[in-house]
Design a protein around this nucleic acid. Structure first.
Length: 716
DNA sequence: GACCTGCTGCGGTATG
């Protein structure tokens, strides 16, 4: 291959795997040679002793990633004469039939396609995977703590039980906060030891944080329309700065909201044309059609400069060629995400990664609540940069029992076997599989509930089989994924797919729309085909998508508070950002943030907790449960129409209460989040909510800290 | 005040 030498992680992985020392996690940055580290020894082992069975599988989270790895592995395997196959939704049925007829070598596959094998080709599985020796899982950090991850672990467990010997698992991961958690995830309760090989990836960073203050429109009484004040901090100013800094080179600008990225792409291209410059801004996200996305990817790899505004779609390792610098609109939701995004720039030897933040704050009104003066977005961005430089990164939380995914796996095993006893079902999925925390009683209750809803039925001799409704669910092609997706309409122009929009926010016929960075007018709507036909137009309105809240780690909030009580101004802030930080510090000191966590605001009490989203969500429900009107504001909570003493008592009482959290559930607005939650009995639905959305122990610890800090102040 | 991911079998028609 023209390589001069192997990298250290490759040398270590080769001896680990060739010595047969068992399961392994390999952690290194993107393009750190992880794939070769895993596959060089795997290929050696297979070449020694080829069998008429798939001997190694590679599981990847994306079709595009599988396609990339497929070409790389084909090159590596050519001389060893080992076949490489891929299996995902875009692979032809004939290629799939061919593999099933004569299984060999290495198979690259998605979790959903493994699921489809169990449902549609169960009679061939023992032959195809009877001599499976290696299971390689790529990007395991993207699976940890998600439904898709639990789904995958269940499938691997079922797959491995078909093989005569237990295959070795090799996980490939980006660096996460606690690598042991990745080893534990891969091991999934089995008694094996999991080795860890980590690559070091120190790089120089060039970071600047641009701050903007958007003035509120000033309304003069009697003048009717408000008119804007100083134009310095609005979206146009931000776009102007992006245009000046990024034009003429190839860059990525990450954002958190698809609608906002569409808006900025349109604005940036208008600015380009207005300045007699080619419109070279592209957009890339999950609601754009495959053709639109591939066109953007193609442009990025070409020599022509272009800047692509994107979401996490371009965060994982898809090849987009050389990227000069990375922009970030608003702070992202995790440091891990920031590291991955930054890692996409300056991929040449010795070149620093370049990162530009664009953070817009809005000027508070005279009667705004006090935390509006703290410029929380800016604080969050700075906190994340500080944590990144310190080398800290989140560890994905893997805690929940995932009843929704268990429902899917029960239906899948029933489809695979045609019928099975309840005890054996329990053994396959719970005792040996990833649902170990589900008790026998809960499992029985779940089966009962699925029986009541006609998903399954019990025959007279005791075996469970699919019910009529269960049969319908399993036979629909929507069954294979463990995660839910909202209902969408396809947006089509001239017979070509542009993208999709959620049914919830469809523009009306005759109205305008920006999508794929272009302007459209809605011509017609077909509810049966879920189709919106559009034509090119001059009018424009940014699209709206369905969204929720991002969970933020406690450490980020903690660092935000730290920044408020320090004096030092980081060197990577521009002038406005530095001024805004000073303003938030003086507001914080005026509030008395050093002395207390409790603040009066009108009739309300504000408690600033500076902790995780999950803890705040829990404390919000604790308040509601005790009859308070409580609102979660991200960095803390508001207790409406209240006084500090009552809040203190509430928190104090909560620290002494020994509760499981189940009493909080009835005060939550929504309980069902996951795909098969609608089939759960109420008790399990409540348990799932407590385990995945709340943090009972954390909330109690924070409540105790808040109360103790107050006691100390009163005493002294 | 959020983002992302995945998917089968079929019947029809065109091509070799």
């Amino acid at each position: 291959m023209g390589w001069n030498q192997l990298r250290p992680i490759q040398v270590d992985a080769i001896s680990w795997v060739l010595d047969g020392r068992g399961d392994l996690v390999i952690a290194a940055e993107t393009a750190g040679g992880k794939t070769e580290a895993a596959f060089l020894p795997v290929i050696s082992r297979i070449a020694e002793n080829q069998k008429p069975s798939v001997q190694a599988i590679y599981v990847g989270p994306l079709k595009a990633l599988i396609n990339d790895q497929f070409s790389r592995l084909e090159d590596l395997c050519r001389h060893a004469e080992i076949a490489v196959h891929r299996w995902h939704g875009d692979v032809s049925a004939s290629a799939k039939r061919k593999l099933v007829r004569s299984p060999t070598g290495i198979l690259l596959i998605t979790p959903e396609s493994i699921e489809s094998l169990f449902v549609n080709r169960s009679q061939h599985l023992a032959r195809v995977f009877g001599s499976l020796e290696f299971v390689v899982v790529d990007e395991i950090h993207s699976f940890m703590g998600t439904e898709r991850g639990t789904h995958l672990l269940s499938l691997l467990n079922r797959l491995e039980s078909l093989s005569s010997t237990r295959p070795a698992r090799i996980g490939l991961s980006a660096t996460i906060g606690d690598m042991k958690a990745a080893c534990e995830w891969l091991k999934n309760g089995q008694s094996t030891q999991v080795g860890l090989i980590s690559g070091t990836g120190e790089r120089d960073l060039a970071i600047i944080v641009h701050g903007y203050l958007k003035k509120r429109p000033v309304t003069i009484p009697g003048a009717g329309e408000g008119f804007p004040g100083d134009e310095g901090g609005d979206e146009y100013a931000i776009a102007m700065d992006i245009f000046q800094a990024l034009k003429g080179k190839t860059n990525l600008v990450f954002g958190n909201q698809k609608g906002k990225l569409e808006y900025y792409t349109d604005l940036l291209n208008r600015i380009s044309i207005g300045n007699r410059y080619p419109p070279e801004f592209l957009v890339h996200h999950g609601s754009l059609s495959k053709q639109v996305r591939q066109a953007a990817e193609h442009d990025m790899r070409s020599d022509r400069p272009s800047t692509t505004l994107c979401t996490n779609t371009l965060e994982l390792g898809i090849d987009v060629g050389f990227i000069d610098s990375v922009g970030q609109l608003d702070p992202p939701f995790s440091v891990g995400s920031l590291i991955q995004r930054m890692g996409r720039s300056g991929r040449t030897e010795g070149a620093p990664a370049k990162l530009r933040f664009y953070i817009q704050e809005v000027e508070p009104e005279p009667r705004s609540p006090p935390w509006h003066n703290l410029h929380l977005s800016l604080l969050q961005a700075i906190a994340m940069v500080e944590l990144l430089v310190e080398g800290w990164c989140e560890t994905p939380q893997v805690t929940s029992p995932q009843y929704s995914t268990l429902v899917q796996q029960i239906l899948s095993v029933l489809a695979q076997t045609g019928g099975i006893g309840a005890q054996e079902l329990y053994s396959v999925l719970v005792r040996k599989g990833p649902f170990k925390r589900v008790s026998v009683d809960d499992f029985r209750m779940l089966l009962q509930s699925l029986g009541d809803r006609d998903l399954l039925e019990q025959m007279s001799e005791g075996d469970l089989i699919l019910g009529l409704r269960g049969e319908r669910i399993v036979r629909h092609y929507d069954f294979y994924a463990a995660f839910a997706t909202p209902e969408e309409y396809r947006i089509v122009s001239d017979g070509r797919d542009i993208g999709t929009l959620p049914s919830l926010y469809l523009p009306q016929v005759g109205h305008h729309l920006i999508l794929a960075g272009k302007r459209w007018k809605v011509v017609s709507r077909d509810d049966k085909a879920k189709l919106l036909v559009v034509n090119k137009a001059r009018g424009a309105k940014a699209p709206k998508f369905v969204g929720g809240y991002g969970d933020i780690d406690a450490n980020i909030r903690c660092k935000m508070l730290e920044l408020l009580v320090q004096d030092e101004v980081p060197t990577y802030l521009d002038r406005t950002a530095a001024t805004l930080l000073q303003t938030s510090r003086s507001s914080a000191s005026q509030m008395g943030i050093h002395e207390s966590s409790f603040f009066e605001s009108g009739q309300d009490i504000i408690v600033l907790t500076w902790t995780s989203s999950r803890i705040n969500r829990t404390l919000e429900l604790v308040g509601r449960c005790a009859g308070f009107k409580t609102i979660d504001i991200g960095v803390g909570l508001v207790f409406e129409d209240c006084d500090e003493g009552r809040v203190q008592n509430l928190l104090h009482d909560y620290t002494t209460l020994d509760s499981s959290g189940m009493e909080l559930v009835q005060h939550a607005d929504v309980l069902a989040f996951e795909k098969y939650d609608e089939f759960l009995p109420p008790l399990l639905l409540a348990k799932a909510f407590v385990e995945t959305r709340l943090d009972i122990r954390g909330a109690r610890a924070v409540a105790a800290e808040l109360v103790e800090a107050t006691d100390y102040r009163v005493d002294s």
